[in-house]
Amino acid sequence: MNHLVVYAHPNAESFNHAILETVVRSLQANGHRVVVRDLYALRFQPVLGQDDLAALDAGDVPADILAEQELIAQADAITLIYPIWWGGQPAMLKGYIDRVFSHGFAYVANAQGIERLLEGKKGLIINTHGTPKDIYDQTGMTEGLKLTTDTAIFSFVGIETVGHLLFGGIGYGEEETYNGMLKEVEEAVVSLFPAR
């Protein structure tokens, strides 16, 4: 399978980066082809501006958007790895979705409804957050995050969400705890995307 991993964290020493390395290593060990898009390292322009809107409406897709869309089109599976900041995605990733998952590429909306243009692809989301997981579960945040990504993004464009891992209490755990989380990531990836 062709896997596209979209990663959004500015710190190469972060736990998110350890998750990225685990995902890539696990996929490659199972014989999958992996392309990583590190949005901060790429200095991806996240702001959807009027120039973008005009160009997209005219069918003249800006080069940086087109490059990402071509990678998505080639992918059988898409994995998003990012931290939860202020109850949502980092602006970098939100901007990636705004600009790249555009009308006419990821979906078409018309009087008949929504046509999902990315059907047949699988999606995995891996998030971290500083708040303990129990609190997110009890307050409804966990379910809210799944609705705003699994449903409002992936399902909206036809991507089947096959997994969504959320790890809480990041920044307050022991090394053993983090190692256990990375093991969970590895097991999930191997299970969801077995050897070819």
Rank of each mutant, 00 (worst) to 15 (best):
H17C: 10
L182I: 02
I81P: 08
G169I: 03
G158L: 01
V5S: 09
Y96K: 05
E13Q: 15
A54K: 14
Q50S: 14
D60A: 15
N30S: 14
V108Q: 14
Q112H: 13
F193G: 08
Y96Q: 04
G173I: 08
R33C: 11
L166P: 00
T149N: 15
D64R: 01
E160C: 00
T128K: 04
V100I: 10
A188Y: 09
K146N: 13
L165T: 06
E21F: 00
T22M: 11
T148V: 13
I114F: 10
D64G: 05
T151E: 13
A41F: 00
L20T: 05
Q28I: 06
S102V: 06
G168S: 07
V100A: 06
F105P: 02
Q45W: 03
Q112A: 15
A67Q: 12
L80I: 14
E176A: 14
G87E: 05
T131P: 05
R25E: 13
E21A: 13
G130P: 09
M92T: 02
L192M: 14
A63G: 03
P90Y: 04
I126V: 12
L66S: 12
G104R: 07
R33Q: 13
H32L: 11
L192H: 05
Q112V: 07
G87D: 04
R43I: 01
A67F: 05
L145F: 15
A106W: 01
F167M: 15
Q138M: 11
A54Q: 13
G163N: 12
V23W: 03
D98L: 07
V34M: 10
I19L: 11
M141Y: 12
G31N: 03
H9F: 02
W86T: 03
L71Q: 13
G144I: 01
W86L: 07
V24G: 05
V6K: 00
G144D: 05
F105W: 03
D137T: 12
K133N: 02
P194V: 09
T149G: 00
I153W: 02
E143L: 12
G140T: 07
G31I: 07
A41T: 08
G31E: 11
V34G: 11
G49W: 02
D150W: 03
V47A: 14
E187S: 12
A55V: 02
F156P: 06
P62V: 08
M1I: 09
A106M: 08
G59M: 10
Q89Y: 11
V157P: 04
A106K: 01
L4F: 08
V189Y: 05
G144S: 06
E115L: 10
L182C: 08
V189S: 00
L66W: 04
L182S: 05
D137H: 04
D76H: 14
Q28E: 15
Y136L: 13
A12E: 13
V47P: 00
G95I: 03
E174T: 11
L56C: 04
A73Y: 02
T131K: 10
M1W: 03
I72M: 12
T149Q: 12
A12Y: 09
V47G: 01
H9P: 01
A54L: 11
R37G: 01
I170G: 01
